[in-house]
């Protein structure tokens, strides 16, 4: 299958602290990849480097064969191909639910307002928020906000969806509704890259699991392999810690 994103030798420094060390990693079309690992292992930074919210300190990020870190490459055109879902939702506070999903389409993709609203409604329906089009972000629960955020990203019809710990800021009883939507998307064949602490979910939906530790990819493989037969000692340690606590 076609490789959409390929990361070669990427590293990232915050000051003198090396957060990512020589990362090699790729995502194929239609693949669902989850990145797991303890806090501070660099998972979120990796995801944020992929859509350039953080600028990698070195290496290459290839998108469909082009190095997007190249000076002449337009990062704005690239970013609209990637949908991003944040831990803190980050819905636009000055827009209602519908408008959150419309504004990007109209301003960035130059779609007409009618067309944009149609697309937005389609995705709001998928996430089950189509009844709340008039609500403002501060009137919604966390789970509702995150589902709108997913619809907003989907409305841009991206090639890849990035999820940065989408359920970590949610109350426990709201985690399920968001994971359900994400599972549905995974089954629809969408390419997804997910940073998560939800091990059961990762086991269930992933085509591939990546375990990160101290800024490197320590191990990657099928969920079966990672969760049931990890080869690395630190993977075993991590899984023992997290599975016991959950």
């Amino acid at each position: 299958m076609e490789t959409i994103i390929e990361i070669k030798h990427v590293n990232k420094y915050f000051g003198s602290h090396e957060v990512l060390k020589d990362i090699d990693f790729s995502v194929k079309k239609g693949e669902v990849v989850t990145i797991i690992g303890s806090s501070g292992s660099g998972k979120s930074t990796l995801l944020r480097c992929i859509n350039l919210l953080e600028k990698p300190s070195g290496g290459e990020i290839m998108y469909k064969g082009e190095n997007i870190l190249d000076e002449k490459h337009d990062i704005f055109t690239y970013r609209r191909k990637l949908g991003m879902v944040f831990q803190q939702f980050n819905l636009f506070n000055n827009h209602n639910v519908l408008s959150n999903c419309v504004v990007g389409q109209v301003k960035v993709l130059k779609r007409s307002k009618d067309e944009a609203e149609k697309v937005a409604m389609k995705y709001l329906k998928i996430v089950g928020m189509d009844k709340y089009v008039n609500a403002r972000p501060n009137q919604l629960s966390g789970g509702q906000k995150q589902r709108v955020a997913i619809a907003r990203a989907l409305s841009m019809e991206p090639d890849v969806m990035l999820f940065d710990e989408p359920t970590s800021a949610l109350d426990p009883e709201m985690v399920g509704e968001v994971l359900k939507v994400m599972k549905q998307l995974a089954e629809s064949g969408l390419t997804m890259l997910i940073v998560t602490h939800e091990m059961e979910f990762a086991k269930e939906v992933s085509d591939r699991v990546v375990f990160m530790d101290k800024g490197v990819i320590a191990e990657e493989g099928s969920p079966e392999q990672i969760f049931n037969h990890p080869t690395q000692e630190r993977t075993r340690e991590f899984l023992k810690r997290t599975l016991r606590s959950s």
Partner: peptide, 14 residues
């Protein structure tokens, strides 16, 4: 909130 900028940048706004 920085997240507002990031969300806008993430959907391709300049």
């Amino acid at each position: 909130d920085k997240g507002q900028f990031e969300a806008a940048h993430a959907i391709g706004m300049n």
